[in-house]
Amino acid sequence: MIDEGLQNEMKKQGVFTTSLQDLYNWGRKSSVWPLQFGLACCAIEMIAASMARFDISRFGAEVFRPSPRQADLMIVAGTVTKKMLPQVVRLYNQMPEPKYVIAMGACAISGGPFKEGYNVLKGVDRYLPVDVHIPGCPPRPEALLHALMTLQKKIETDALTGEKRPRHLQADAPSEFPIPEFGEHDLVPSKNEQLWKPAPVVRNE
């Protein structure tokens, strides 16, 4: 890495320097293509975010792709039911790496107001690696923009090499996740063990 002071000094002289990593990440973060994928109420706010007033294209993410093969970002916008979950995971598996997930709204985070329902999944992070969570029911379009900016910051700091490099640069890291199926009572498996572990129960004696 170039020393920051030297870099600033050279900038004043009209010389722009960067590293391959910064250039690569700058390119990636400026054109995140989301999957055009609405599940419930939050999808309407997601559409509103892409319309004139909020204008998600200011952040380079206006190209909503109907096909998962061309998408970088899955915005899980709405309630994920147990009937829909296998399709959600399948869509995620079909997306090419690098890929990111935003859980938009209370339902995608935890089941939200419908948590007690028998058919509602209690959080999509049980099956998918979620990068950004947006609270709200539904979150305002501004909140979605904020989530996108948070994701961009995350992409910005991705290392190209070394131990801290992200999943898509590690050859042995999984890029696909097992698709659950309907079992006798519930989805089988009921969670992806590698991704999600229930919070430990602490009992005060």
């Binding site: 599940l39 009937k83 419908f114 007690e116 329902g117 028998y118 058919n119």
Partner: peptide, 14 residues
């Protein structure tokens, strides 16, 4: 359909 069955009626009865 049924992909967005959120148990509205059952929850409301509780």
């Amino acid at each position: 359909f049924g992909y967005l069955h959120r148990n509205h009626e059952k929850i409301a009865e509780g």
